[in-house]
Each structure stands twice: as structure tokens, then as C-alpha cells.
Simulated scan of single mutants.
Amino acid sequence: MDENKLDEELKKIWNETPNAHSNDIKEDSWEEFRSSTFPSKKKSFVWRNYAAAAAAIIMLVGTGIYLKKDLLKSDISIASTVIENTTSKIKVVLLPDSSKVELSPNSKIELAVNFSINRKIEMDGEAYFKVKKDKKHPFQVFCKQTTATVLGTSFTVNGQVEKEVIVALYEGSVQMDVKGQNENWILKPGEKFTYANGNPTVEEFNRFTDFDNEKISDVSTYIEKNYGYKMIIPTEYNNQRITLRITKKEDLKTIIQLISEMYNLKFEVNEKVKQIIFL
């Protein structure tokens, strides 16, 4: 296969892209990728070079990420991708490092293409982050004038109000920094950092939801309201009482497993109709 034919085949793979990217971005990205991968005047091009290039393209296409000359509040020029929630419901996003983001409506995040080693995110709006631990690669969230740096933790960042950012920590620890200020703030679980009108403050907040000898049906109502799943329990358990403390951002799976163990019940999840059926 001659060089022109190889070029055509590689570009064909590159253009099999998500619709979210414009043709201009695809074209610019292709030219940048080709020029950096296949410098001109090369004397030969063997099949293993083609295979390696194709694999690199497929990796980028599969994640919907294209090379753009943007900065993500970093001294290095890094490629990025934007994930936006234009719906009226929370959008759950699994990041390349297995961290999870619950993106609120009218919110968006922007992250690096080399995110696994450069875990930087710029965000607008509100999101809940559950971060995968990686001591070698700290996780940073930039929102307006603030930076939240973590290793492994769960927290919310709310920047929906103009000139205000609120970071609430549920688990782990977070270091807060403000652009132009030398001081930093280390948050503990149950602490909330607020930056408004140029003033940073730290205060406690209630990160737990408590059920103190309440009907199990109250837990069912809570789950439906906060997670969107309806809990179906055997009728003989309708008047059962439960005492339970969970964080307000607890994983639904953890809550269901706790209830299952407390009452020695099995459960099934019907994703189609969003139901959890205890047996």
C-alpha cells in the first residue's frame, strides 16, 4: 500500500467521530496529529507504524477526544474535551481514570485528553465528584478563581451563583486554593469552603441523612426522591422500623446492600422501570 493510500485509510478512521465535534475541529485535529506522527521526508513507512498510528487514532476516537490548542489553567498546552449536561436531570459521567462525576443540569466540565496522568478539570455549574485514588496524579478541579486538589475523595463543587464557589467535602480531604492568594485551606469531611465576593470562609455542614427508628417506607421515599429508583418491599415489612445513617451522597448500591443485610433480604434491580425489588 503506497503512502497516499495509507494516509487516506488513516484519515477515514479519524473521521469516524462523534457528532459533538465540528468538521473544522476534526480537520484541524487530523492535520495536527498527522504532522506530529508522520514528519515529512521520512524515507520509509512500515506496517507496524501504520498499526500503531491506527491504534492511537482508535483510542482517541473511542473516547470522543480531539486535539485542540487550549489551556486548562496549566502551564502546559493540553488537549481537552467538554462534557455538558443540557438535560433537566443529573448526568452521570465515568471519567477515564474511573472517577465518577454527577453533573447537574446546565453544567459542564472540561478535561484533558491525557487525563490519566494530568487529572485536571475545569467546570462551570455544579457537580459531585467521587475520585479514584491515585497518589502519583492528584485530581484538580478549577472553578472560577478556586482550585480544589484531592487524592481520593468525594465532594461537591457549586459555582452556579455568579462570583461564588462552594465546595462541600463528604469523604477524604481537599486542599483549596484561591488565585492570587498565598494561603490554602485543608478541608476535613463535613466542612464546606465558600468563596464569595473575594472572601474565603470554612464552616461545618451536615453531610449525613439520619433515619432514627423510622418506617422503612421513609427510606423508600428518600431513595425515590434522591436516586430516582422506586423501592418495592414485601408487605410484611411495611411497618418495620429502621435506624440508619448515610452520607447525603452515598452510593445507592451501598444503601441497598445495607438494607438487604439488615433484614436478610435479597434484591433485584429493574433498570428499565427504575425499580429495586426486595425478596
Rank of each mutant, 00 (worst) to 15 (best):
Asn4Asp: 01
Glu9Met: 03
Lys11Ser: 02
Trp14Thr: 07
Asn15Met: 09
Thr17Gly: 06
Lys26Cys: 12
Glu32Thr: 15
Phe33Leu: 11
Ser35Thr: 15
Ser36His: 15
Ser36Lys: 15
Ser40Ala: 08
Gly64Pro: 01
Lys68His: 13
Asp70Phe: 02
Lys73Gln: 12
Asp75Gly: 10
Asp75Gln: 10
Ala79Pro: 13
Ile83Pro: 00
Thr87Lys: 11
Leu94Thr: 02
Leu95Gly: 04
Leu95Cys: 04
Asn106Pro: 02
Glu110Asp: 03
Val113Ile: 13
Asn114Glu: 13
Lys120Arg: 14
Lys120Tyr: 13
Asp124His: 07
Asp124Trp: 07
Lys133Thr: 11
Asp134Gly: 04
Lys136Gln: 08
Lys136Ser: 07
Gln140Lys: 11
Phe142Ala: 04
Lys144His: 14
Thr146Val: 11
Ala148Ser: 13
Gly152Tyr: 13
Phe155Leu: 05
Phe155Val: 05
Glu164Asn: 10
Tyr170Asn: 06
Asp177Phe: 02
Gln181Lys: 10
Gln181Leu: 06
Leu187Asn: 12
Phe193Asn: 05
Tyr195Phe: 15
Val202Thr: 11
Phe205Met: 07
Asn206Phe: 05
Phe211Gly: 05
Asp212Thr: 05
Lys215Asp: 12
Ile223Tyr: 09
Ile223Pro: 10
Glu224Val: 02
Lys225Ile: 04
Glu236Ala: 15
Glu250Tyr: 03
Asp251Cys: 10
Glu268Cys: 09
Lys274Phe: 02
Phe278Lys: 13
